[in-house]
Design a protein around this nucleic acid. Structure first.
Length: 575
RNA sequence: CGGGACGUGGCUCAGUCUGGUAGAGCACCGCGUUCGGGACGCGGGGGCCGGAGGUUCAAAUCCUCUCGUCCCGACCA
């Protein structure tokens, strides 16, 4: 590709409304432009990067036996009502009416559509296993789009759906996708980790997220240093801490009221009473759908809302506001306690063995000391409800855990029969018995892969693209386009590279060298060939890898061969 | 939706507090000199100051409303 006949509008200035590196660099390198909040146009180089990621995904999906289809972006509301998600999915689902006043929506995901297809077309165990995938634009009306392409409202996604006759086969499909995902992200040159994850609104029994390790990641993940356990903090189990319980009977002190004027937060209460936070119990009042529930958490812990939500099985949970708290406890927020509450009380397992602790007094400016479970109040149920902390141990092996951040680029779910039952996707097994198909679904954020790769691979000068998803493999910089020798040499090598099917950008603009170097670094093409008057005098040209600090020179006639080798080397390093 | 900030040539921003009729750098066009890390000189084009209403002799500047964008929280590939 000749730069002069192409379109790469770069900027020197950092756009003021771009916060994270990948967003800034994609704008500056001329890969994307924003149309409106969370919605972007892909310019030629941005599109090329996305297409390369798509092709890798396509190859690996096909290799894994999945079959490509393309489903509609616009979907009938009817289907969503049938699956029950029309009401449940909420505000991210962009809804509208067509001219006949029928409900419609822009597809944020395609479980409904694919299940509809399958219920119409798959009737026998002989037709399974089968896995359909598509690469398509999705629209989710995110509450807060941000970080450019990373969390847009409109984004390109690969989604796949597997259909199996029994659990065992479904597990096999899941494993095959797990392996395909591993190959895909490796081939894209990403440093990533598969972690156990929460299933969220998609539902289902188990799932893994593929996290690209990056400081700017939106998700917190924990990894064990001793075994291979890794999980999203939303999901991370906490191993039950069993305190010795026998002391409880003997060691209970007399309950005591203490006046705590205006003392509300954990840190205020603990410093006022000169106790440590693990001697205090927080009482959180939550609305879970229509029920109000009190949750007890130790002062130094945080409630994990995901665990809480799935424990109580609620569609929506919400921390109670001041009015509701007052109605339930008789006190303003900050003074709630479990004693005398007429609602269900559930508690994190860590407080099971606690004694003589502090709670709120259910009265303004009052706390209670020496509170004890059983004597002063009862807990309906204990469960693992809190966020894991750095002092917790690995739930699998008891090893040390560490915290990190990741960008979710892929997510795979075992769905079970959630959608097939709701939508009546049934088949006949070998005994002629009717059963719901067992599903799995598997997503990859295609556009997000590009952003994540940049997030992980850049320096002060710009992007350092992993070669498989770089818009170009090689950039040629002829430093003068008004000197015949330079032009001739350039054209010859350019042609040679093209003949070898190498994806090359020839910067044939009549620009000064500095501009060409800066632009080349910005766009981050892995291999750069510089052809300048100095080198040509010695019959040499200069080659530099974007990922390495130093360049080297080589004879003109060897350039194409050496470049070929370098490119092969870059691809091989990702295998 | 709650909390915060910002909208001034294509981009980055100054001017707003203290009203007096719009600037800089970069980018763009022309000519010349330059040419291995975002050159220089000369000349030039481009802005209803997000929009509407109001106050005033006079509004980018003050007031009200509105739209948009970004940042912090709940969602997710």
């Amino acid at each position: 590709m000749r730069h002069s006949e192409y379109f790469i509008p770069t900027h020197k200035e950092i756009p003021s409304d771009a916060e994270i590196i990948s967003h800034q660099l994609m704008l500056r390198a001329g890969m994307i432009r924003k149309l409106t909040s969370g919605v972007y146009t892909y310019l030629p180089t941005g599109l090329k990067a996305v297409r390369k990621a798509e092709n890798i995904i396509r190859e690996e999906m096909n290799r894994a036996g999945a079959i490509e289809v393309l489903m509609p972006a616009v979907q009938p509301g009817e289907l969503w009502k049938e699956s029950g998600r029309w009401d449940y999915y909420g505000r991210e689902l962009l809804r509208f009416k067509d001219r006949h006043n029928r409900d419609a929506c822009l597809g944020p995901t395609h479980e409904e559509v694919i299940t509809d297809l399958v219920r119409k077309e798959i009737h026998s165990y002989k037709q399974m296993p089968i896995n359909f995938y598509q690469i398509q634009t999705k629209f989710r009306d995110e509450i807060r789009p941000r970080f450019g392409i990373m969390r847009g409202r409109e984004f390109i996604m690969k989604d796949a759906y597997s259909f199996d006759t029994d659990e065992e086969a479904a597990d096999r499909s899941y494993r095959i996708m797990y392996e395909a995902y591993t190959r895909i992200f490796n081939r894209c040159g990403l440093k990533f980790r598969a972690v156990e994850a929460d299933t969220g609104t998609i539902g289902g029994s188990s799932s893994h997220e593929f996290m690209v390790i990056a400081k700017t990641g939106e998700d917190q993940i924990i990894t064990c240093s001793d075994c291979d356990y890794a999980a999203n903090v939303e999901k991370a189990e906490v191993s039950p801490v069993m305190e010795p319980r026998e002391v409880m009977e003997n060691g209970m002190s007399l309950m005591e009221e203490v006046v705590t004027p205006g003392i509300k937060t954990v840190s205020e209460v603990t410093s006022f009473l000169k106790i440590s936070p693990d001697q205090l119990i927080k009482t959180l009042i939550y609305k879970a759908d229509d029920e109000v529930i009190a949750v007890l958490i130790r002062g130094d812990h945080e409630l994990n809302e995901h665990k809480f939500q799935s424990f109580v099985g609620a569609g929506e949970i919400e921390l109670a506001g001041p009015d509701l708290v007052f109605e339930i406890t008789g006190a303003p927020t900050g003074f709630a306690g479990p004693q005398g509450l007429k609602i269900k009380i559930i508690a994190d397992q860590s407080i099971r063995g606690m004694k003589n602790f502090v709670t709120g007094g259910n009265k303004k400016d009052l706390h209670l000391k020496n509170m004890n479970i059983g004597r002063d109040f009862t807990v309906d149920r204990f469960a693992d409800l809190r966020l894991i902390t750095s002092t917790d141990l690995c739930p699998k092996c008891g090893g040390k855990i560490s915290f990190g951040r990741g960008i979710e680029v892929g997510h795979i779910f075992k769905l079970g029969t959630k959608y097939s039952q709701a939508l009546n996707a049934l088949f006949l097994d070998e005994h002629g018995k009717e059963k719901p198909v067992i599903m799995g679904c598997y997503g990859i954020g295609v556009s997000r892969i590009v952003a994540a790769a940049i997030e992980q691979n850049h320096d002060k000068d710009g992007i350092i693209f992993p070669i498989p998803i770089s818009p170009f493999e090689v950039t040629i910089l002829p430093l003068r386009v008004d000197e015949k020798i330079i032009i001739d040499t350039t054209e010859r090598i350019y042609q040679e590279l093209l003949d070898q099917k190498i994806d090359v950008l020839l910067d044939d603009r009549a620009e000064r060298p500095g501009i060409k170097f800066k632009d080349a670094d910005l766009l981050g093409t892995p291999v750069r060939l510089t052809i300048g008057p100095k080198g040509l005098k010695n019959g040499e040209v200069e080659i530099k890898l974007r990922s390495e600090p130093k360049s080297f020179t080589c004879p003109i006639n060897d350039a194409a061969t050496i470049i070929r080798k370098k490119i092969t080397g870059l691809y091989d390093s990702l295998k």
